[in-house]
Simulated scan of single mutants.
Amino acid sequence: MRRLLSVLLLATALAGCGDQSGQAGGDGKFSIVTAFYPLQFLSERIGGDAVSVTNLTKPGAEPHDIELTPRQVGDVAGAGLAVYVRGFQPAVDEAIGQEAKDRAFDAASVVTLLQAGAGDGHEHEEAESGQDPHVWLDPVRLATIADALAARLGEADPGNAAGYTSRALALHAELDTLNDEFARGLKTCERRELVTSHTAFAYLASRYDLHQVGITGISPEAEPSPQRLAAVAQEARGTGTTTIYFETLVSPAVAETLAREVGAKTAVLDPLEGLVDETGDYFSVMRQNLAALSAGLGCTR
């Protein structure tokens, strides 16, 4: 009897270990781990009630250089799908490579990427490929990613595939509407130079025919050289820039310094790397960005 009990206990333990594949959590929902906010947003909107989503980047945290706790690495290992942007967060790349390589969705792999720092006067070390990871700031690319994520979820969780497809179609339509709003709102502007504290906005600028001028490169923690600051100041004066944009989650000090230098004001342009106000979402923040751009660039509808 004692031997039989030992065998049963061992079998139960092994069954518990097998459940760490993440196909379903304790609530029976398909488990998704996301690297940072925009991917959490996509996963929740497409997954609906069929999924349980865990975000590795805490609200209000700057995501570029996060370090994962052992528990978070365990979340990656136990997820049915890990959703990330390769090259954006080294710690996440490492955890997924070791723990969820066959259960991962790289959002950047399904769209055409821009080269990091192309034309902005900076050299970047962001990713090995030298590509800019900030794809979510282009609603058109994000819609493509949404479609691909729905398909990947359908493969991993075929019982809910129809729901994933349906919700992705609805989200795609909303993103098309947002793209139309940006295209109309930024069509006619007095200025098209977008002076930002760091170059997170290349996809947005490319989509809507703006010229991004970054004080620093893709890394928000980088400090500009005096030469770079002088070059941006000269360009800002030459183009009549009235607004220097700084982002949430990092200090506005450099943008404020430049603004004083050229006689401009500052305004927030949110790169949506993390959600600051949890009462909002991707759409509300992007529309706030549109209003800030419209005001700063002198746009008329």
Results as ranks from 00 to 15, higher is better:
Arg3Ser: 15
Arg3Glu: 14
Leu4Arg: 05
Ser6Phe: 15
Ala15Asp: 14
Cys17His: 13
Ala24Gly: 11
Gly26Gln: 12
Thr34Lys: 00
Phe36Thr: 00
Gln40Met: 12
Leu42Phe: 02
Ser43Arg: 03
Thr57Phe: 00
Pro70Thr: 09
Arg71Cys: 07
Asp75Tyr: 13
Val76Thr: 04
Tyr84Gln: 02
Val85Pro: 02
Gly87Phe: 01
Asp93Leu: 11
Ala104Tyr: 04
Asp106Trp: 03
Ala107Val: 00
Ala108Leu: 02
Thr112Gln: 14
Leu114Val: 07
Ala116His: 06
His124Ala: 10
His124Lys: 04
Glu128Val: 10
Gln131Ala: 12
Pro139Thr: 10
Pro139His: 08
Val140Trp: 05
Ala143Tyr: 04
Ala146Ser: 14
Asp147Gln: 13
Asp147Gly: 12
Leu149Asp: 11
Arg152Thr: 15
Asn160Phe: 08
Ala162Pro: 12
Thr165Arg: 14
Leu171Phe: 01
Phe182Pro: 08
Arg184Asp: 14
Gly185Gln: 08
Leu186Pro: 11
Lys187Thr: 10
Cys189Val: 06
Thr196Met: 04
His198Asp: 00
Ala200Cys: 06
Asp209Ile: 03
Ala222Gly: 07
Pro226Gly: 13
Gln227Arg: 15
Ala230Asp: 15
Gly240Phe: 14
Val250Cys: 01
Pro252Thr: 05
Ala253Pro: 03
Ala259Val: 09
Glu261Ala: 11
Val262Tyr: 04
Lys265Val: 12
Lys265Asn: 13
Asp270Ser: 09
Leu272Arg: 00
Val276Phe: 00
Val276Pro: 00
Ser284Pro: 08
Val285Asn: 01
Thr300Asp: 13
Thr300Cys: 06
